[in-house]
Design a protein around this nucleic acid. Structure first.
Lengths: 343, 343
DNA sequence: CTGAAAGCGCTTACAG
DNA sequence: CTGAAAGCGCTTACAG
């Protein structure tokens, strides 16, 4: 592999000039620039990332992260990915500052302001969808600070560097596809969602509806909201099943899986009929329900990977100047059954 | 983050001595060693990988890879992963030499010998299971050259640094789990495998059998071998379905998916009965069959990722001295349906 | 057993 | 517009 030094020697200029050409820093005579560019092309120069990464220590980069403060095992997984990546980047001499805030625009804004005070060069956030927050983020970007959103995105906000997470619409379609196959295209479906106004939840339901539109034998009987709360989930699922005893398939869109499944199990015992259940994510309680057969399949989104990828995109942008191709990086839609839930 | 230099200053020794302690190079007075170790511990020293990676250029490392020469889209994916990782490591100044050989012990041995001549420091191989090859690999390891196997492993050979690939047994179980759910635990199954004596194929069948042992309504009616060949696959599937018209589920264990599916489609047209099909991998022809509904689900193994991971394990071992925890790194068991086959 | 020096490839800050 | 020097953190080869 050829180095900047070797190119400098061939071009008859100094290393500094070659560096200026490569990194577009201007202040180079157009003729020498062209000559250097030609040599770079001919010799197929590729920068050695190790040199670049070592040198960034001199820039004192800071990356700020606003994560969600919640004792929720799913967020813990996501935060774990962010923390692991943070440890790695710290060894490179980048300061990664992690602040946790509850999931409101107000709390997040406060932490963002703190991070700006500290002079961060990039921001990672799992944003709420409130429009006040979008305004704050616009202010951040106005200061040339790149933003990466993780796990959930801002609606109608495309200036951020990248969104890292699932394609919720396609996840919903996949859930419907599974349910269609498991029920041989015939079922009465009860849906239990987290929040009617959470975009990720409504996107999943949207994908689900669009898929079953082609299957007249599949019918959505009722849709209820559980506020992502286990107790509420038990209550709404139980009352829904009591009101619609014909329900033989349940689509669990968000949290509250355990509560819903308790109601489902009781209903099955009472009526002796089978109910096909599909859920999202694989928090420990959900895993257990997949193992014991209550849930037939759960669709997972690699939260640890999301956290790592989000930070690595900021790193690549700040260190290598790489911009992600389109502003979205989707993690895999992972279908897990009893046999591969622990793989 | 603290550096070797800072530790040296605090300990009152030179950087070289600190480096000796860290990397266990011996030749250090036990007392100073203990003093330095204590400081490393207290200050939570973590090496900066960028420094390490930059310095390896001076070692002139060479990694040799023996890949499979075949115009098979699955191997192409795997080789793509290896090639991509190779490009990356070349920028670090590591020489990655890729040789392709047909899938026989003889051809692979020849390439291995060439690579040894060139003085490689590590070997990546997708090995055949022939015992002659195992002997050759033992000779390689005797020269302190680490070996990583990718995609398929050597039977009863555990001294290699790592195997990177799928857990075939669990894949087979997962295929059975899917089939059980899709057929509501009742079906007459025809199996079409690649080679009876290929370990990856027989492991999948073994996992499949073990799962359905708990479901008396599921019965394997016949098992045929297609030599991973499309024409042969068409022939054996067609004759199998003609001999056993009761078959309503087909498990495609290996290659020849397109040929088998053509026979399946004709049988469905003739009898008007449904046949549930499950396959492995997502080569372009298989993808198309998932899209059009002929195959209900295909189980994928991330071949590109396998290639990359295998090379990165060799890299980490040679550069950082990291040994993988247990000698196996399994890639995800990915279930793909019509809705997520293109995600 | 120990240390001083040079080198890996890149960037930065400064002098002209 | 251009170059010389110093620095990032690590390893290597050599001198003592």
């Amino acid at each position: 592999m050829v180095t900047q030094s070797q190119i400098a020697k061939i071009a008859g200029v100094s290393r500094a000039t070659v560096e200026r050409v490569i990194n577009n820093r201007g202040d180079v005579n157009e003729k020498t620039r062209q000559r250097v560019l030609k040599i770079i092309e001919e010799m197929d120069y590729k920068p050695n990332p190790a040199g670049k990464t070592l040198a960034i220590k001199q820039r004192n980069l800071k990356i700020g992260c606003v994560i969600i403060k919640a004792d929720n095992p799913f967020y813990e997984e996501l935060n774990k990915g962010i923390r692991e990546a943070a440890e790695e980047y710290k060894t490179y001499g980048i300061d990664v500052i992690i602040e946790s805030a509850v999931f409101t625009a107000k709390a997040q804004t406060e932490k963002i302001n703190e991070l700006l005070e500290m002079g961060v060069n990039g921001l990672l956030i799992q944003p709420t969808i409130e429009p006040e927050l979008a305004d704050v983020l616009r202010r951040v970007e106005a200061q040339n600070i790149p933003i990466v959103t993780v796990n959930t995105d801002l609606p109608n906000y495309n200036s951020r560097l990248c969104y890292v997470g699932n394609d919720f619409y396609l996840c919903g379609k996949t859930a419907a596809n599974l349910m269609q196959m498991l029920t041989r295209s015939t079922c009465r479906i009860g849906i239990v969602t987290g929040f009617f106004n959470a975009k990720s939840h409504s996107d999943r339901i949207c994908g689900f509806r669009d898929f079953i539109a082609d299957y007249p034998g599949m019918e959505i009987v009722d849709t209820r909201e559980n506020q992502d709360d286990e107790m509420e989930s038990y209550y709404v699922t139980r009352t829904m099943l009591e009101a619609h005893p014909e329900i033989d398939a349940v689509f669990l869109v968000a949290g509250g899986v355990k509560g819903a499944c308790q109601a489902i199990r009781q209903q099955k015992e009472k009526t002796g009929r089978m109910i096909s259940v599909i859920s999202f994510d694989d928090v420990p309680t959900t895993k257990e329900l997949v193992r014991d057969g209550t849930i037939l399949a759960t669709i997972c989104q690699q939260p640890v990977r999301q956290g790592r990828m989000a930070l690595s995109i900021l790193f690549d942008y700040l260190v290598e100047g790489k911009t992600p191709e389109n502003g979205r990086m989707y993690t895999d839609i992972q279908i897990k059954l009893r046999t591969n839930i622990d793989a």
